[in-house]
């Protein structure tokens, strides 16, 4: 076997192993129970501390590529918002592909809780320009967003009552898969003092821990594991039902067994790779 063929064989063996582990764990995984860490709990506590009926801003900055990680997170947060009768305002600065997804997630969740569009929640469209629209919203919301995504004038939406600028929101949750978080921290928090909570993909979470110590960010929900932890606080009924009926739907906690299995597989692969590497080196040294 040529070195190139051996390399390909190894690569395809790893792909096959990963595929098999994912398939088996999806079929037989069940629903995990993941207790919340302090960093995730802080976001929950901030939302919980809002008076009933308060407005909350959610910047939904992700597209279908990150839906698997961030949709369960958004669902878990929305569950808490509906329970507290918060007025949920959703916007996006990520990409023109984001509002469609945000709209469908919020509408599905709101319909399931009997919430009414315009009164209990509203969805606004995409704003380009990075930090510029955030700075502009901080001065005058209505000058930037004259209408919601469907064309209803902003002032005709009861959900927008009392909101004329960004700082009228006591809390903003940035649920993101891209670097729009930096804009929210620099423009929203540093310039206007907007209170920020983050929901990010697992790979991005470590990029924002330094903002916890400076209190520029109240907490971080990271990836599927963060979403699963949030679910354990806000979606107990759904989790109980999923365990009983074995139908998990979109719950992050149902994805955790797969994540556990694949993390352990990768760790074992790294260990095996190192064993083979050191065995090869020893063999090399031993040969004259």
């Amino acid at each position: 076997m040529t070195p190139e063929a051996r390399k390909n064989a190894v690569r395809w063996s790893v792909f096959a192993l990963v595929g098999a582990v994912i398939t088996v764990s999806l079929l037989f995984g069940g629903v995990s129970d993941f207790h919340p860490t302090a960093v995730v709990r802080k976001v929950y506590d901030e939302v919980e501390a809002l008076p009933d009926g308060s407005p909350i801003l959610i910047s939904s900055d992700f597209d279908p590529g990150s839906e698997a990680e961030l949709k369960p997170m958004m669902d878990a947060v929305l569950e808490q918002c509906w329970r507290k009768n918060l007025r949920v305002i959703v916007m996006t600065i990520c990409s023109p592909n984001s509002p469609e997804l945000a709209d469908s997630i919020v509408r599905a969740s709101a319909d399931a809780h009997g919430k009414v569009y315009g009164t209990d929640y509203a969805v606004f469209g995409y704003l380009a320009g990075g930090s510029a629209p955030i700075l502009a919203l901080g001065q005058d919301w209505h000058a930037v967003y004259k209408t919601d995504r469907g064309g209803t004038p902003c002032r005709d939406l009861p959900a927008m009552k009392g909101i004329s600028k960004l700082t009228d929101f006591p809390l903003c949750l940035e649920i993101s898969a891209v670097s729009t978080i930096d804009y929210w921290i620099l423009a929203g928090n540093a310039k206007y003092g907007l209170k920020l909570g983050l929901g990010v993909t697992a790979v991005m979470a470590t990029d924002y821990y330094q903002y916890l110590a400076t209190r520029q960010v109240v907490g971080i929900i990271g990836g599927v594991s963060g979403a699963s932890q949030y679910e354990s606080m806000t979606r107990q009924d759904a989790l109980r039902k999923a365990r009983e009926t074995k139908e998990a739907g979109d719950l992050a906690s149902a994805r955790m067994p797969t994540q556990s299995a694949i993390h352990v597989t990768i760790i074992l692969l790294v260990v095996l790779g190192n064993i083979l590497y050191f065995a090869g080196k020893r063999k090399e040294k031993a040969s004259p």
């Binding site: 190894v10 690569r11 790893v14 792909f15 192993l17 990963v18 595929g19 994912i22 597209d63 279908p64 590529g65 990150s66 839906e67 698997a68 997804l101 694949i262 597989t265 990768i266 692969l269 790294v270 095996l272 790779g273 190192n274 590497y277």
Partner: peptide, 24 residues
Amino acid sequence: SPMSATMFSLLGFFIASAAFRAFR
């Protein structure tokens, strides 16, 4: 939506393969 999710999910396979071959 499905094409975008598929592209992103392929990452898992490549990360596993890269970790096995390069993380020494």
